[in-house]
């Protein structure tokens, strides 16, 4: 199914690292998933939701545990359904309550990761994969799923980004202009939940959030408008994804962590030139 694509990779990248099928799959996944992290990250950083998205990752972990326990057609579907439900729940509570959002997120974050660990150990499943992740375990059917998600997120981003931007400046201003802030919020967090759930098995729960936050954080150090912000964030995500994948192959290190380290490096570089670029 993917043979024509493998052929293209062999033609463009006639290197040793790209000759293995598992590396080709990982490369394809990186090309599909890092841009999504780049664009979703822009709003996570803008809305100061770093802690919130971290808890979505934890919710996804419980989802995966439940998914593999129920053994529905494929565990991933159970996981996605749970994560989205969790995202909707926590967004609703965040919007409706007056209690400190920080505390609520903290409570849900710890509860879900504990529930996930208990469930997984209860059924004698290994959990290391989910903590650290294995980007080299990607299969062609994973790639098919990623492609669908990629298209859906891009469509979503075309539809709701403007509304999200107005909400991020002032929610009341947004609703005065007829924007359903709650609905938009839920669509956004659900999209983040889906991406995180799918990617967690490859990147690992420990560092997945940094993939969402770092590229956007690096981009906003030197961007002065929304276009630059997106372009730079996507570029930072892609560069760290590709460089991390290749470096981890030669250094024999954990791929996800290598990618995150490079993203962090990009962040510190942009931070150091921030003053020269932005006035």
């Amino acid at each position: 199914m993917l043979n024509w694509w493998y052929g293209i990779i062999d033609f463009i990248l006639p290197f040793q690292w790209a000759s293995h099928a598992f590396m080709k799959n990982a490369l394809t996944a990186v090309l599909l998933v890092t841009p999504l992290f780049g664009i979703l990250g822009t709003m996570i950083v803008n809305n100061r939701m770093a802690f919130f998205s971290d808890s979505l990752g934890h919710g996804a972990f419980t989802g995966i545990a439940i998914g593999s326990m129920l053994g529905v057609i494929k565990p991933i579907w159970g996981a996605i359904i749970f994560s989205v439900a969790f995202a909707i729940l926590i967004t609703t509570i965040k919007n409706k309550t007056k209690t400190s959002t920080d505390t609520i997120i903290g409570v849900f974050s710890s509860t879900t990761i504990a529930a996930g660990l208990v469930l997984i150990t209860l059924f004698n499943q290994p959990y290391n994969t989910y903590l650290v992740g294995d980007l080299l375990s990607i299969t062609p059917s994973d790639i098919a799923l990623l492609l669908i998600v990629f298209v859906l997120v891009v469509i979503l981003w075309v539809t709701i980004f403007n509304k999200l931007l107005v909400i991020s400046v002032n929610p009341l201003l947004a609703s005065s202009r007829g924007i359903n802030t709650m609905l938009i919020d839920i669509l956004f967090t659900s999209a983040v939940a889906v991406i995180v759930t799918i990617t967690i098995q490859w990147v690992g729960i420990l560092i997945i959030n940094s993939l969402l936050v770092l590229p956007a954080a690096a981009a906003r150090n030197i961007a002065s408008n929304t276009r630059q912000y997106h372009a730079l964030s996507i570029a930072a995500a892609l560069i760290s994804g590709l460089a991390g994948l290749i470096a981890s192959y030669y250094l024999n290190t954990a791929t996800g962590a290598t990618i995150v380290l490079i993203a962090a490096l990009l962040y510190f570089i942009t931070l150091s030139i921030r003053g020269k670029v932005l006035k």
Binding site: I39, N46, W157, F161, S168, V169, N170, A219, R220, R227
Partner: peptide
Amino acid sequence: LNFDLGTPTSVLDLFTASISKKPAW
């Protein structure tokens, strides 16, 4: 207006987002 002061949103971006359907990016 307690948005993040570091936000890379220009005045034109805010207007684009508010008055048109074309994505501000």
